[in-house]
């Protein structure tokens, strides 16, 4: 979504009622973030809304980007937030070979997830993996965080285009389109 460097547009303050709604939405969408929501968006702080190209709006706190949203789609966390609260989002993992493609902004493809180095929710995996990557299959449309084999931090976040069950069966095609990855325009964005 942010392959090119982007320039932020107008910055405006978010109404406090809208801010409350955003908080509610975030908690609803990511229930695991519930206990930390006061850390991410303190009640008294003023959120800002920064308009980005292609009808994307980004919510920031001071100069920290928090969540972005395309039109009225799901609120997607910025990777900085994901890095701070890695356990609060549904996660997948890609193998090492796929990292360089993902980091250059390519569409995430299913083989990167289904191969030996990748992880999908799987009830038959060993205990550690089940705990990390869950066992319930994820539906298309879920916001997921993508980690990488051998790396600690996530490298991509976005909306699934294909359910994980289907991925396991087909093992082909695009798994996610237009995510936010490390080093893309949104990551490099400088909010004065």
């Amino acid at each position: 979504m942010f392959k090119k460097d982007i320039t932020p547009g107008a910055k405006s303050k978010v109404k406090s009622s809208a801010q409350r709604a955003i908080r509610g939405k975030i908690v609803e969408e990511y229930p695991l973030l519930g206990p930390y929501i006061d850390e991410i968006i303190p009640k008294k702080e003023q959120l800002d809304l920064v308009k980005l190209p292609d009808r994307v709006s980004l919510y920031t706190l001071g100069s920290n980007p928090l969540f972005f949203q395309h039109m009225d789609d799901a609120l997607i966390p910025h990777l900085a937030v994901v890095h701070k609260y890695p356990n609060c989002f549904p996660r997948l993992r890609i193998d090492r070979g796929a990292i360089r493609f993902v980091l250059s902004g390519a569409t995430l493809m299913a083989p990167g997830l289904t191969s030996a180095g990748g992880r999908l929710p799987n009830p038959d995996a060993d205990e550690e993996d089940v705990e990390r990557y869950g066992k319930e299959d994820l539906e298309p449309g879920t916001v997921v965080v993508v980690e990488a084999e051998g790396k600690e931090n996530a490298c991509l976040v976005g909306v699934l285009k294909m359910g994980t069950k289907e991925m396991k069966m087909v093992k082909k095609g695009a798994a996610m389109e237009g995510g936010h990855c490390l080093g893309d325009g949104l990551w490099m964005l400088n909010l004065g």
């Binding site: 890095h83 980091l103 990488a148 790396k151 600690e152 931090n153 490390l182 080093g183």
Partner: peptide, 12 residues
């Protein structure tokens, strides 16, 4: 230098 987490520097 590249603003990524250091473990990803090798791809930068």
């Amino acid at each position: 230098v590249c603003s990524l987490p250091p473990e990803y520097c090798e791809f930068g």
